[in-house]
Design a protein around this nucleic acid. Sequence first.
DNA 1: TCCATATAGTTGCAATTGCAACTATAAATA
DNA 2: TATTTATAGTTGCAATTGCAACTATATGGA
Lengths: 162, 162
Amino acid sequence: MKGDKNKNDTRKWTEQEASAWTGLVQAQQTLIDKVELELKKQGFPSLGWYDVLWELERTDGGILRLNDLGKRVLLDKYNVTRLAQRLEEEGLVVRGQCPNDGRGITAAITEKGRKLRKKMWPVYEKVVRENFLCKFNSKELKELSNFIERIQASGLNESLSK
Amino acid sequence: MKGDKNKNDTRKWTEQEASAWTGLVQAQQTLIDKVELELKKQGFPSLGWYDVLWELERTDGGILRLNDLGKRVLLDKYNVTRLAQRLEEEGLVVRGQCPNDGRGITAAITEKGRKLRKKMWPVYEKVVRENFLCKFNSKELKELSNFIERIQASGLNESLSK
DNA sequence: TCCATATAGTTGCAATTGCAACTATAAATA
DNA sequence: TATTTATAGTTGCAATTGCAACTATATGGA
C-alpha cells in the first residue's frame, strides 16, 4: 500500500468516457422530466407516487413493509415514512402493523390506489415509448439491457447498503 | 383521426422493455446516489453545485448567463436563480449584469470556485470510474454512447423546451 | 436472563424544489 | 412610435427532501 497512488487515481476522461457518463445522466433525467411533466399536465401525482403504487400492486397481496418498499423504490426511510403518510391521506394506501415484527409497518394498496395507478399508466407508458423504447428494435433493446445490467452489478468492493 | 386509437396506445411491455427502462432509471439513480454519498462523506457540496461550477469553468471566461447555465444543467430557472445565490454566498461565483441584455444576469466562477471544483473532481471521478466506466472497454463504451445518443435525439414530435 | 448492538420507523428542523404570480427588458408588429 | 407578446429573472408560499436525533423492537452473545 505504498507506491500505488495512481492505480485508480484521477485521470482525465476520454471523450468517450465523458460522453457516456454525461449522456447517461442527462438522457435519464430528460426522460424522467418528460414523464413528470406529462403526468402533471394531466393532473396526476408524481412518478414517485406511481412507483410506490406499482410496487405494491405487483406484490402478492398488494402489501409491503415500508422497509422493503423503500429498497425497491430507492427511497431513504424517512422519505418512505412520509410518502406512505401522504398516500394514506389520499386513501391510496392503508398502513398497518406488521404481524411478525413489532417494529414493522406495512403499507397496502387500496382499490382507489389501484384505480389511480391504472389511469396513470398509459400516460407514463406513452412518454417512455415515444421517447425511449421506440428508438430501439428488439435486438438493440436486449443489448442495451445487457449493458445496463452490467452497471447494476455491484462494483469492485462497494458497500451496497442504503 | 378516427379509428387509430391503438396506434400508439398503451401496451403491456415485454420483459425486455420493462427491464431496459427500469434498469436505466435505477442504474443512473444508484450511481448518482453513490456520488452524492461520497461527496457528502468527504465534506463536499452536492453534485448540483459541482455541475454548475464545471459548466462555468469549462466555458470561455468562466462566465455564463443564468439562462444558458440552466439549460446546461437541466435546472428550472427559479432553481438557477437560487443556486447562483447560494454559490455567491459561498464566494464560489460572482453575479453580474449582462452587458448586452438588460434582463440578463451572469454568473462567473471565482478562484475559490475553481479550487473547490478541482478538489471535488477526484472524488466524483473515482465513484464513476469504479461503478460505471470500469465495466466497459473502449468499444463497448462507444456502443453504449451511441445508444444513449439515440435516446437524446429528440423524440417524435416532442417540444424541446425547458 | 441481561446487556450491547442492530434494525425499523418517526419526527423536528433546515435546505431544496416546484408552482404561480410578478417585475423588467427585448423583440415584433401595426 | 405605441402596443403587444416573448424572454429573463425573482420571489412568496407550499411541498418535498435531507440530516440528525429519537423511540421501540429484535437479535446475539455473556
